[in-house]
Design a protein around this nucleic acid. Structure first.
Lengths: 156, 156
DNA sequence: GAAAAGTATTTCAAGATTGAAGCTTCAGGC
DNA sequence: GCCTGAAGCTTCAATCTTGAAATACTTTTC
């Protein structure tokens, strides 16, 4: 444990940079595989899926601003994605009583059905793509990721 | 080890899905922070930085196709990014003797200087953002990420 | 050597993404 | 009531991203 007994080949900062590059490598591969399957097999995209997933957790609907915060993307971006989902009959906007500025985005029954079918497949794809890690390894990694994320939130 | 002795609270597939969501959460936060700093403090973007980093490792230049494979982005995408770097005087294209189809993208001295300055800052930002993990934790995670990535490459 | 097949790059249309600017509406102070 | 500031959303220009089609060149085949 004493650093003098185990001289460092690299600084902590270099190790963290290496960690960052590995994180990018894995998430990039998983994401591009997911994108490809969504597009080729289901004619949709990852951002659309993300929006639908958020709406799916709130059957009563989510304000555009809540959607934007929850997904951590800009408000203008949400407008466009919901526009396209609406054009395809998967989502709709409903007014908020008492606040004529706001809109709730909500899944249509068609949107809900489409999402639920895709979500089941999605879970299977992730299971396959991350299949190199067993449940214990996954739990270890989740714990480390939470430590990492907590640190960022603390300094936000 | 026998599942009957340690009943699972959730399936391996749910655990992996949870892992995936945590991975997205951490990398998303780090990325958006990096993007913001690149834009606000240095008037550039992450994709430009990535291209410059690849070119920086190959002072003699990289073919557009090599750049595309190395960064795992489409060829059309690389064209646009190199176009913009070139317009800013940070990169240039040189012909490949013996193959008039191909082009080498290469950093200009100005581009190299800009990249090196930014790379040093980048390492510091990563060190700060991932500071919630110490060197041992980072190494543990790197090992797990490599297992995960190796599994995907095996099935590619 | 001419035709065919393959390779390197660019162009294009569509979508995703951002931040800034603009519009409408709401909430408080007066 | 009216003004001011804030909030919610959309619009806009710029960049990033993809895959498909177009273009130009090279290599292989016969």
């Amino acid at each position: 444990m004493n650093p003098e007994l185990r001289p460092r080949a690299e600084s902590a900062s270099k190790t963290r940079l290496r960690l960052w590059l590995r994180l990018l490598k894995l998430t990039g591969r998983v994401e591009s595989d997911l994108r490809r399957r969504m597009r080729d097999e289901h004619d949709t995209t990852l951002p659309r899926f993300d929006v639908m997933a958020a709406l799916s957790r709130h059957p009563e609907g989510l304000k555009m601003s809540e959607l934007s915060q929850s997904l951590r993307v800009s408000a203008g971006n949400v407008t466009g994605i919901v526009d396209r989902l609406t054009a395809d009959g998967l989502a709709l906007r409903v007014g908020v009583p008492g606040d004529r500025r706001a809109q709730l985005a909500r899944l249509t029954p068609k949107g809900r059905a489409a999402f639920e079918a895709l979500a089941a497949l999605h879970e299977g794809w992730i299971d396959e793509l991350l299949g190199g890690l067993d449940a214990d390894e996954a739990e270890t990694m989740i714990a480390l990721l939470e430590r990492g994320t907590a640190h960022m939130e603390g300094s936000e």
